[in-house]
Design a protein around this nucleic acid. Structure first.
Lengths: 236, 236
DNA sequence: ACCTGAACACCGTTCAAGT
DNA sequence: ACCTGAACACCGTTCAAGT
């Protein structure tokens, strides 16, 4: 409520698409997809709901724009540091997405939605390109570039989504050792499962208790890299 | 509008949770998540919206129940055929989920939502167990069971989601050769991308045009199996 | 115990009207 | 060209009332 700033520096920005996306991300971060509302958006932007439709076609497009902005940001931040090796490059891209999803958990579902709505939207393509360049530099035979890059892409998105959720669950339980507590509880739940129905899950309950999300995530990446660079087995 | 059947055989089933889930799946198949509405559900079940809440806590639980039912079905169908080898077993589970997502595309997003909401829901656990048993039988060192199974799980869900979407996109364009046409169009789009921004994507445009979704999906599974069974490289 | 259906609060989207 | 805000159609959910 400043009485009047010199030139209304940023109080009365004229409502741009960028500004709308920016506030949309804030709402999504605060309360997930349910938190993004044209009315809430309008209130924060000191305008009416209808005004937003001048800059954005509908909610779906707004969600896409928010996703695109964050993914582009995550990838650029990683591309900037020219990696020492292709392996490092892949790790960097993977961790960039991992971190982005950890900060903005709604991204995981949003990416899955875009992927399944129609594959190869701009966002997916951006990630595909970013991962693929490193795959190409890795010495993988050219005729398996597409397969290898796709496999990596799917793993990264899926695993980042779950591990990020893991991290959030742990955090939600409070500060300090709650993360360990969370894993311990989950592990005990696994050990209490029916031995006939869940023998395997019971067997790895301890591994799951002791795992670190980030390490686990990178171990998966390493596993796929191994598969890509090893000679494929006899029959596929 | 039959005037009166002998004993109201199945006309007037007393509205059970199973029946509700069954109709929910029909609605989801017909029009995606937007198609599932308590009012539409009530109409199809010849009752009021409130009645449904006697059997189901809310929409989210209903969605979970529908997902659980279909995943359980897909996994049981595969478990029944005792596989010749662990590799075959993994392929069978993977394809079972692939097919389920192809028939019910909304499953992909729903699984991602469950995964990211909190990991290790019943559905995830079921898949994890199913995949993990075969991983255990594969001769993978026990201390990497958790990592290996997680990697496979994430790949399967992510890739099945995208490839199934691919299949649906192709189908939506009409019968016959439209699938090839769809891939051809997409491939041309890739070739027309900016050479500076998308060198890799342009380079694999032809591979993407010629790929078969199902083969591609299985090639990814094979790649991860290779990575699991090969000795890991020096530094991970 | 189970069902009915009106009512509540809230949503995305539209659009005539303003500047 | 861009914004306003009431209005429309629709949604999930609740709940007093019925059987």
């Amino acid at each position: 409520m400043a009485t009047r700033t010199r030139r209304a520096e940023r109080r009365e920005e004229p409502l741009s698409r960028e500004r709308i996306v920016e506030v949309a991300v804030e709402l999504l971060d605060a309360a997930g997809e349910g938190g993004l509302t044209f009315r809430a958006l309008a209130e924060r932007l000191a305008t009416g709901p209808g005004a937003i439709y001048w800059h954005v076609a509908n909610k779906s497009e707004l969600l896409d724009a928010a996703t695109d902005a964050l993914v582009a940001g995550a990838l650029e931040a990683r591309d900037a540091r020219s990696p020492k090796s292709p392996r490092d490059g892949i790790r960097a891209v993977a961790l960039g997405l991992y971190d982005a999803i950890e900060v903005h958990p709604w991204l995981a579902v949003q990416l899955a939605t875009q992927l399944s709505r129609s594959p190869w939207q701009p966002v997916t393509l951006r990630i595909f390109e970013s991962v693929g360049r490193q795959v190409g530099a890795l010495g993988v035979p050219e005729n398996s570039w597409f397969t290898a890059t796709s496999a990596l892409l799917h793993y990264i998105l899926g695993a980042a989504g779950q591990n990020a959720a893991n991290a959030v669950s742990g955090r939600a339980l409070g500060p300090g050792s709650s993360r360990a507590q969370f894993l311990d509880d989950a592990s005990k739940t696994w050990e209490a499962l029916d031995p006939d129905d869940y023998p395997f899950t019971r067997a790895v309950a301890a591994q799951m208790r002791d795992h670190d999300d980030r390490e686990q995530f990178l171990a998966g990446v390493a596993l796929i890299l191994t598969g890509m660079t090893a000679a494929p087995p006899s029959s596929a």
